[in-house]
Amino acid sequence: MNIVGSFLINVAAFLVLAIGGGLGTAWYMMDTGSRLSTRTLGPWVTWTTAGRPDADPYTRAHTSRNALLPISSTLELTYVASTDSNGGRLHSACEYAIVMEDPEIAWWGIAAFDGRGNLITNTAERHAFNSETVMREPNGHAVITLARDARAGNWLPIGGGSRITLVLTVQDAAWAAASVERGAPKPLPEIQRVACR
């Protein structure tokens, strides 16, 4: 190969590596995160410094890029799940069960969105439950069922044939403080796939 060809190959490689690598890794760190900025607990992922003025640059970019307005993680933690507890992608074609076992948390809420954060259209006009609206079992636990068709109890409709994202919000200063030290004071609820079509 002649000198010109070698030069052009080096220029092309330089640009691809520099721009593609720089932007690609930045996008990954802003979108998915890493251990530097997120904490993973089963299927749930939280941005540990979300909302705080001293948040790391990746968290700030994630917040801004996704048009979020997070409450400071010293008071409230937001956990996002896009897979079930076995690692399968959450999808509206499947049915899932989530058991909330923490009646002592000051306040919690769980909401279902499509993969882009949009509310899912459903005839029941139901998109979320919180610790005030959920129906509890005699032992204080709450079983939330995500399914396309109606289910008894706490049914969260997930129609539309798309990927699903679940957002669990825990507002409890003691929980938030303990989470800084060891991830979560208690295990977060599992997301069990019941069936798929």
Binding site: A13, F14, L15, V16, L17, A18, I19, G21, G22, L23, T25, A26, W27, M29, M30, P57, Y58, R60, A61, T63, S64, R65, N66, A67, L68, L69
Partner: peptide, 25 residues
């Protein structure tokens, strides 16, 4: 050289998104 420039692009993009990104709340 590409790795060094990639680092600069990475840092610049990360810091620029909150300031220049059109999609914030």
């Amino acid at each position: 050289g590409a790795a060094l420039l990639a680092g600069i692009v990475h840092i610049t993009a990360t810091l620029a998104v909150p300031l220049l990104g059109p999609g914030n709340a």
